[in-house]
């Protein structure tokens, strides 16, 4: 554990809790992509199956359980409790275009050919692109609520901080995993446009709206 990794995890946790808070407080999931939330739930489920097979630390297990619970809770709120507020007309990104390539790639570029390892690798690839339906939705509606913008910023920062963590681990532990690094870089690049809009608009107190 290093400071970048810790800040990354906390940023990730903050993002997930912010989203739940927003939906609960406004009693609405308007502007939130159910497809992105579904993809994240698939990501956590595929990756955290190792809760049953290996123990790393209490911190690690607790965070995994929180992420899993929160993502299933978000799906429950979006597709059941507040379903009438879900803006599915604007959530039209085809997620099979993300799932299928991620699955194929996880059979081609993977460290070890075991079911758990392929699922883990699939989750890494899918996470890298899971935000695309949400960004697509923001571009279609041309705007995002301020709290949604904070959510996206925290979620994007998490993987960017992980990149710093991997650089740090390379120097201190001589540790390098190209699968997570490349996927993490792709993931962070996808947020760049959004980061720019967030810094130039939201931080100056303006609502995030596209020109």
């Amino acid at each position: 554990m290093n400071i970048f990794r810790l800040c990354g995890d906390l940023s990730h946790l903050l993002a997930i809790l912010l989203l739940l808070f927003k939906i609960w407080k406004t009693r609405s999931c308007a502007g939130i992509s159910g497809k992105t939330q579904l993809l994240f739930t698939i990501v956590y489920t595929a990756r955290y199956l190792d809760l049953f097979t290996s123990f790393v630390s209490v911190y690690n297990s607790v965070m995994k359980i929180v992420f899993l619970t929160a993502s299933y809770g978000t799906l429950y709120l979006m597709f059941y409790k507040f379903k009438p507020t879900y803006d599915h007309n604007h959530d039209s990104f085809r997620i099979l275009y993300l799932i299928v390539p991620a699955l194929v790639l996880s059979f081609i570029i993977v460290h070890v050919y075991t079911v758990m390892e392929i699922l883990w690798t699939f989750s890494i690839y899918l996470e890298a692109v899971a935000i695309m339906p949400q960004l697509f939705m923001v571009s279609r509606t041309g705007e995002a609520e301020t709290i949604t913008s904070h959510y996206l910023f925290a979620l994007g920062s998490y993987r960017a901080l992980y990149i710093l963590n991997w650089i740090y681990r390379y120097y201190t532990e001589d540790f390098l995993d190209w699968i997570t690094i490349m996927a993490g870089i792709v993931q962070t690049i996808l947020y760049c446009d959004f980061f720019y809009l967030y810094i130039t608009k939201v931080l100056k107190g303006k609502r995030l709206s596209l020109p």
Partner: peptide, 10 residues
């Protein structure tokens, strides 16, 4: 190098 170290990340 083994990727097992990555598994301690989230």
């Amino acid at each position: 190098k083994s990727n097992q170290l990555t598994k301690d990340e989230l």
